[in-house]
Amino acid sequence: MAPTGASSDQLAAALQNRIAIEQANAVLAERFHVDADQAFALMRRHARARSQKLTHVAAQIIEGSDDIGRLSRPERS
């Protein structure tokens, strides 16, 4: 069964959101010298603390408009 126009659009949007989150995750991992899981936890914690969607925070990180220097470094496990 082929996806309908609406579900196809939803899949495309979900893929774009995932790509943005992965790119932002890579920025944080590089910046803070942590692994991908720690970077994601940092981004998620930042989004929750600001009551923002993860995709919004990711877009800000990619654009450089979010001051990721204000993020607290995740604890190493």
Score class of each variant (00 low, 15 high):
Ala2Gln: 09
Pro3Met: 15
Thr4Cys: 08
Gly5Cys: 08
Ser7Pro: 04
Asp9Asn: 13
Asp9Gln: 14
Ala12Met: 11
Ala12Thr: 09
Ala13Lys: 13
Ala13Thr: 10
Ala13Gln: 12
Ala14Gln: 09
Ala14Phe: 10
Leu15Lys: 13
Leu15Ala: 15
Asn17Tyr: 14
Asn17Ser: 15
Ile19Arg: 07
Ile21Phe: 05
Gln23Asn: 07
Gln23Glu: 10
Ala24Asp: 00
Ala24Trp: 01
Ala26Glu: 06
Leu28Glu: 01
Ala29Glu: 02
Glu30Leu: 15
Glu30Ile: 13
Phe32Ala: 04
His33Glu: 14
Ala36Leu: 06
Asp37Ser: 14
Gln38Tyr: 10
Gln38Ser: 14
Gln38Arg: 11
Ala39Phe: 06
Phe40Glu: 02
Phe40Asp: 02
Ala41Lys: 06
Leu42Asn: 06
Met43Thr: 00
Met43His: 00
Met43Val: 02
Arg45Asp: 10
Ala47Gly: 04
Ala47Ile: 00
Arg48Pro: 01
Arg48Tyr: 06
Ala49Ile: 04
Ala49Glu: 05
Arg50Leu: 15
Ser51Pro: 05
Ser51Lys: 12
Ser51Thr: 09
Gln52Tyr: 05
Gln52Met: 09
Gln52Val: 02
Gln52Asp: 02
Lys53Arg: 15
Lys53Gly: 07
Leu54Lys: 02
His56Pro: 02
His56Asn: 06
Val57Cys: 00
Ala58Trp: 00
Ala58Cys: 00
Gln60Lys: 08
Gln60Cys: 13
Ile62Tyr: 03
Glu63Pro: 04
Glu63Asp: 14
Gly64Glu: 03
Ser65Cys: 05
Ser65Gly: 05
Asp66His: 11
Ile68Met: 04
Ile68Thr: 01
Gly69Ile: 07
Arg70Leu: 15
Leu71Cys: 07
Leu71Ile: 07
Leu71Asn: 02
Ser72Glu: 08
Ser72Phe: 11
Ser72Leu: 14
Arg73Leu: 10
Arg73Trp: 09
Glu75Val: 15
Glu75Ala: 15
Arg76Asp: 09
